[in-house]
């Protein structure tokens, strides 16, 4: 088991290095960093000095190594647009994105899994058909359109909920949270629901199809042939066997919530990393783009590692084989 985890860690490091290479190539070769950092009145000599100071004349590998070393300390240079260290910008924005993502994840899981189980167990029920139609609409509605519709309904027509920003936030030693104020919580409702809806439908459909698959297996048939009541067959045997594939894909899906947050943040003007990233793209603010890329890669790798560990918790076949 230990070798397995070491193996996965090594893989993760490789993935991060690959992403860092892409990020670095962005920084180095898309546009000229010196041009981006200086104004029109900078002399040629000043530019050359800056070039030397930034180490842009060093060999490729040296520059890449330095980039990775800096990135490891969350040091990504100065934003071209904001003229501030990217690290500060990200640190300001990180709490907003994480709070939004985590609340959405929780919503998606808490609603998606039971709905999936229900539709698999009662495929012909009216409620199941309702869920399935709803999920099709959910998959077919682009996230930004959901956001717009919710804004129109709850913000413009009903005027119940705020439609942009985070509301009032509380500062807790370097972390800002909107979860402790009324306006903060109210502001969270619409964006969190928007972000959760798409993931929720995906999770529901996944759980449903996996569960249907498991319900067709021989061991479920044998459970029925032994006369076990449906409650035991469904929840003890079928659901647990559904979890293994579900964990993999939900893991990936939850990671992508961070990426989908870009859209939601843009619709609701939520002051998170996604909004920063989209602004960076429109203004070609390469250091911010590179930094965001590395951050997302890091989150993904962490989520994947957690998923691997969860496998061990769920599946005895892995535990024993690795231990032996």
């Amino acid at each position: 088991m230990l070798t397995f985890i070491l193996h996965r860690l090594l893989q993760s490091v490789l993935v991060i290095l690959a992403v860092a290479l892409i990020a670095f190539s962005l920084f180095r070769y898309v546009g000229d960093p010196v041009n981006a950092m200086t104004g029109q009145d900078t002399t040629l000599q000043q530019r050359e000095e800056l070039r030397e100071r930034l180490g842009l004349n060093d060999p490729f590998l040296v520059q890449y190594g330095r980039f990775v070393a800096d990135a490891a300390q969350a040091e990504f240079g100065i934003s071209y647009r904001h003229r501030r260290p990217v690290r500060e910008l990200l640190a300001e924005r990180l709490p907003a994105t994480l709070e939004l993502s985590i609340v959405s994840m929780a919503l998606a899981l808490l609603l998606g899994i039971p709905m999936g189980v229900y539709t698999a167990l009662k495929p012909k029920g009216i409620l199941s058909r309702g869920f399935m139609s709803l999920s099709l609409v959910g998959v077919s509605l682009p996230t930004f359109l959901i956001g717009i519709l919710l804004i129109l309904l709850f913000g413009v027509v009903l005027r119940w909920l705020p439609t942009f920003g985070r509301g009032e936030v509380v500062h807790l030693s370097g972390w800002t949270t909107g979860l402790l104020t009324k306006s903060g919580l109210q502001s969270l409702i619409l964006p969190a629901f928007t972000l959760a809806l798409f993931q929720m439908t995906l999770i529901m459909r996944l759980v449903r199809s996996e569960m249907l698959e498991v319900l067709r297996t021989d061991f479920i048939k044998f459970c029925r042939a032994r006369g076990l009541p449906s409650r035991l067959v469904h929840f003890r045997h079928a659901l647990k066997n559904t979890l293994v594939p579900v964990i993999t894909i939900t893991g990936l899906q939850l990671g992508s919530i961070i990426a989908f947050a870009i859209i939601t943040e843009s619709v609701f003007q939520w002051p998170g990393m996604g909004l920063l990233f989209i602004q960076a793209i429109t203004t070609v603010d390469i250091p911010v783009m590179a930094a965001y890329l590395c951050m997302v890669a890091f989150f993904f790798v962490v989520i994947n590692l957690v998923v691997d560990l969860l496998y061990f918790a769920v599946d005895p076949r892995l535990r024993v084989r690795r231990a032996a």
């Binding site: 993935v15 690959a18 992403v19 962005l26 898309v30 546009g31 990936l252 990671g255 992508s256 990426a259 989908f260 870009i262 859209i263 990233f277 989209i278 960076a280 793209i281 429109t282 070609v284 390469i286 783009m289 890329l293 997302v296 890669a297 993904f300 790798v301 994947n304």
Partner: peptide
């Protein structure tokens, strides 16, 4: 494919778009 799969498609599309803007 594995490396690419660890990123959502929309993010990669955004990134390519951003690069195109720079280039």
């Amino acid at each position: 494919a594995d490396v690419q799969l660890s990123f959502p498609a929309i993010l990669i599309a955004l990134l390519i778009d951003g690069v195109a803007r720079g280039v």
